[in-house]
């Protein structure tokens, strides 16, 4: 049975003079423990989709169901890592990390310990007492990741979480996120522009069209790749095949779009 279900979800952004159709008729079922990636060109509505699932904006049409219950009535914990880090500049790193737990009134000595451990694992030891403006973009992104992970969400929504990182750190964090998710059997939706990242982490990959944002293809990642660790996936022979396939599909998508406009 589907854990997270989107039924004909559409979204319009309104302004005083006009409106934009960001999403058009998105239907999707995601099982518990599944890892989904979303690929699509800039402006196709990926962030909008995540914000709807996170319950931050309300879709103009359609339903979002969690365990068959409408999203805003369910009490599942969702973790949403926004495209920009939005760390609070007036809070120390540790307080930034713990803000989710504070909102949920769950801060304790144990969670503090856990926060320090996670910060250490993402490669930011001994920085808990500094302020965000003392960190680099990549460091801030990692703090934002820890802030999302620490609340132990049932569904993890990640909007380009590794975009500001160097290749090595990125691979290390992919491994970490993958490990945590599999260990606790958590569900995740990842938005990325990196085809390799999508392949190496996910069970299924969703390709989106632009104008209006729509699902064009859903690709099942082969079992051999699914069961391998992210870092090792990239060495499998079928990886390259899938990569080329996705690459071609994305290109086709942008070409048809281009021809429509001219």
């Amino acid at each position: 049975m589907a854990f997270l279900k989107l039924e004909h979800v559409s979204h319009l952004y309104f302004s005083n003079k006009t409106y934009t159709k960001a999403l058009d008729d998105i239907s999707l079922s995601i099982n518990r423990g599944e890892f989904i990636s979303i690929l699509g060109s800039s402006g196709c509505g990926k962030s909008t989709l995540l914000s709807i699932i996170a319950g931050i904006i309300k879709q103009t049409k359609g339903n979002v169901l969690l365990n068959n219950i409408p999203l805003h009535q369910s009490d599942y914990v969702l973790g949403y890592m926004l495209q920009q880090d939005y760390l609070f500049p007036w809070k120390r790193i540790i307080d930034n990390v713990l803000i989710g737990l504070k909102v949920q009134k769950k801060v304790s000595k144990k969670t503090r310990q856990k926060a320090l451990k996670l910060l250490d694992e993402v490669g930011l030891p001994h920085l808990e007492d500094t302020f965000p403006n003392e960190l680099s973009g990549g460091m801030r992104q990692r703090v934002a990741l820890v802030r999302t992970l620490i609340t132990n969400p049932e569904i993890l929504l990640l909007d380009e979480p590794f975009s500001a990182l160097d290749y090595q750190t990125k691979l290390k964090l992919e491994d970490l996120v993958y490990r945590l998710l599999k260990q606790y059997h958590k569900t995740a939706i990842l938005v990325t522009h990196d085809i390799g990242e999508a392949i190496s982490l996910s069970d299924r990959i969703i390709l989106m069209d632009t104008n209006p944002g729509r699902i064009s293809t859903i690709i099942d990642v082969p079992k051999v790749l699914r069961e391998e660790k992210p870092f090792l996936v990239r060495r499998q022979p079928s990886y390259q095949q899938l990569f080329d396939h996705i690459w071609a599909s994305l290109n086709r998508g942008s070409e048809t779009n281009g021809s429509k406009e001219t």
Partner: peptide, 21 residues
């Protein structure tokens, strides 16, 4: 910046908590 509120809302913060934090 409303995005600070988005961060808090993603943790299901109330409006009062958003104000405070």
């Amino acid at each position: 910046d409303p995005n600070y509120l988005k961060v808090l809302q993603s943790f299901r913060a109330t409006r009062w908590t958003c104000f405070k934090e």
